[in-house]
């Protein structure tokens, strides 16, 4: 590293600089360059610190405090909130037990999020494939249609689903009208309702990244596969799937993360009893008046999201190279 490259040496000697000095100068230029970059990214760093790290820190600190009697916190250290995430004291004999209610909600959240991800995959991948294989003009129209729901408020979209599935809703009325059923089918306030609602709401988040990776797919590779005697099944498994995988993983993450933290959809479609993590957290800051527990639950949720994201980074870190 200390020896100057042979290229610039003649130029340096002709201008009267010795090679060592030239190397030092080059180092100085590099240092200045780095300093300029730091200066340029300072505003971004400031915003990230103030808007993301700051509030997060407050939440973290609150999770180690004592709940106040009417909400808020008392500035006394207490690990109780963290213990209460998974354990609870028996009201009668003061022994520690698993916090079944919390664990059930954790489990339901995970289950519903996985279910939602799976449903959006099943619906989204063929949709993305369909769009990506249309001609350019038609593609734009389909993509536009896919993004339209984004323009509408989440609450309104959820209530639209409710209109479809409630006992007096479109589906039940139609089925009763046709004489296929006599009693309305109970769909509202079930896990099914929540999964349906989330699938509907998050489907575009699956379609768009999958579409992007299918669109990038070099169809000459598909021809090469057929040329080498691949069957349709083998073609999909050996060539298309590995190349589209980054998009599928991105879509899955994009659906899974908001599903895990979903609040509006389970609240509207799940009623009061089918809580998800988001609702549980909200409960602690509202009726529960246990802000530290709410904070601890929020951080737990965030940790789960982080795991999913790390997995994503790990997988796409390898995948990105293929697309150059």
């Amino acid at each position: 590293m200390s020896a100057p490259p042979s290229g610039p040496a003649p130029a340096a000697s002709s201008s009267g600089l010795d090679p060592g000095r030239a190397a030092r100068l080059a180092g100085e230029v590099a240092r200045r360059d780095i300093r300029t970059r730091w200066m340029l990214s300072l505003p971004a760093i400031a915003i990230v610190t103030a808007a993301a790290a700051g509030p997060l820190l407050i939440v973290l600190v609150y999770s180690f405090l004592t709940p106040g009697p009417y909400g808020n916190v008392e500035w006394r250290f207490s690990p109780d909130a963290w213990i209460n995430v998974v354990l609870q004291k028996d009201i009668f004999d003061d022994t520690w037990q698993w916090a079944d209610a919390h664990l059930r909600i954790f489990w339901r959240s995970l289950e519903l999020s996985f279910l939602t991800t799976a449903l959006t995959l099943v619906l989204g991948v063929p949709t993305a494939w369909f769009i990506a294989t249309r001609n350019e003009r038609t593609r734009v129209v389909w993509l536009f249609l896919i993004t339209i729901p984004f323009w509408t408020n989440l609450l309104i979209r959820t209530i639209a689903v409710m209109e479809l599935i409630r006992n007096e809703g479109v589906i039940n009325s139609a089925l009763i009208g046709l004489g296929l059923i006599e009693q309305p089918i109970q769909m509202m306030f079930t896990d099914f309702a929540i999964a349906l609602g989330m699938t509907y709401v998050y489907l575009p988040l699956m379609v768009l990244p999958v579409y992007a990776s299918i669109e990038k797919l070099d169809f000459r590779l598909v021809e090469a596969g057929y040329d080498l005697y691949a069957s349709r099944r083998k073609m999909f498994l050996r060539i298309i799937l590995p190349l589209v995988k980054p998009g599928i993983i991105a879509g899955s993450i994009l659906v899974f993360i908001p599903s895990l933290g979903a609040y509006v959809t389970p609240r509207v479609l799940g009623g009061g009893k089918n809580l998800m993590l988001g609702n549980l957290i909200e409960l602690q800051f509202g009726q529960g008046r246990n802000w530290p527990l709410g904070a601890a639950l929020a951080i737990t949720l965030m940790a789960m999201v982080m795991v999913a994201l790390l997995y994503y980074v790990h997988v796409t870190g390898r995948g990105r190279r293929w697309h150059g």
């Binding site: 070099d218 590779l221 021809e223 190349l243 697309h323």
Partner: peptide, 12 residues
């Protein structure tokens, strides 16, 4: 079998 102009090697 074909040797493609762009080679079309499977990148993965």
């Amino acid at each position: 079998n074909t040797v493609f102009q762009s080679y079309a090697l499977f990148p993965h």
